[in-house]
Nucleic acid binder design. Structure first.
Length: 299
DNA sequence: GTCCAGGATGGGC
DNA sequence: GCCCATCATGGA
């Protein structure tokens, strides 16, 4: 077991991120939380890596990991992965300053202080998850994801627990639609996912390329692929590329959160939401992410 | 039984 | 360009 330390900024709270991860922990098949420690396995540069993240000393994220390969590069790639996972490079101060000027959001932000957009650093995983979740309720989406991961993913054993690794695009590119409809994906989603798997495997769609583009161009690039509409593109840019202004405005969860927060009899329409979110320009991904959390507490 | 879920697409007009 | 049926299942 090797160790990696990541120093975190004043506007980061590991406890808030753990709280977020805990919300869907029962449904999640790609990590486990145990005594304030996040445990997970991923594939980095083709090598399976198991890691545990905790915070024994305030503002020092401690990552213990086991890598199967003997690559010294693992440390750097893992550091990159964790940085994206908790969006560590972003300073939330400007976002919080905007929050102080909004009576509706101010208490929400106070409650969630230090929460980062918990990301899905792997582009293929992020797109698959977004497509899987289209139109269906989240509980069912998690069921589909679990079947997909347990059927086509690799796994590693650690201390008596099995940790699954999200299936590689190369493997999924070889599947047929019926392989996925057998797991109760719709035929359409199955075709979308296999199409994206081929695009990523053939490097026609890469994270590195998207990272060089500004938000609007990255979005245009993404929606060229079947199955990726405006919502999915924004969701992916938000969760996988840490683009702080990505705004999945069509999201029904966002609509419900606003309706609830504003105590409205019915949902706002898209132009109204667009207008309302204008002051948050630059931070609309965080705005969305924080609003989603207001749907989870049953108060 | 009905309606809605963290949407996208292709057809008809 | 807008409107609408379709998808595939589960939970309220």
């Amino acid at each position: 077991m090797q160790t990696l330390i990541l120093n975190t900024s004043e506007t980061f709270r590991f406890s808030s991120c753990l709280w977020y991860l805990h919300q869907w922990c029962d449904h999640e098949c790609l990590h486990r939380i145990e005594v304030k420690t996040l445990k997970k396995a991923v594939r980095l540069n083709g090598n399976p890596v198991y890691f545990e993240i905790s915070e024994p000393i305030p503002s020092q994220l401690t990552v213990n990991y086991v890598a199967s390969g003997s690559h010294s590069a693992t440390c750097d790639v893992l550091k990159e992965y964790i940085t994206a996972l908790f969006d560590l490079d972003t300073d939330l101060l400007p976002f919080y300053q905007l929050g102080e000027q909004d009576d509706l959001l101010e208490p929400v932000i106070q409650k969630l202080y230090g929460l980062r957009i918990v990301g899905i650093p792997d582009l293929f995983e992020a797109v698959c998850w977004a497509i899987t979740g289209q139109q269906i309720n989240l509980a069912f989406a998690y069921t589909l994801k679990r079947r997909f991961v347990e059927t086509f993913g690799d796994c590693i054993e650690q201390e008596g627990h099995t940790y699954f690794i999200f299936p590689s695009s190369a493997l999924v590119a070889q599947l047929s639609v019926s392989d996925l409809t057998a797991l109760q994906f719709s035929a359409r989603k199955a075709a979308y996912i296999i199409g994206i798997a081929k695009a990523i495997t053939h490097q026609e769609l890469t994270k590195a390329q998207l990272q060089t583009l500004p938000l609007e161009q990255a979005k245009e690039r993404l929606v060229q692929w079947k199955g990726i509409g405006n919502w999915t593109a924004n969701y992916v840019l938000m969760k996988s590329l840490q683009m702080q202004d990505a705004f999945p405005i069509e999201d029904v969860g966002l609509h419900n959160a606003l309706k609830k927060l504003m105590k409205l009899p019915q949902k706002l329409d898209l132009p109204a939401i667009e207008q309302w979110a204008k002051p948050w320009s630059g931070w609309r991904a965080y705005l969305t992410f924080y609003l989603w959390q207001t749907l989870l507490d049953h108060e």
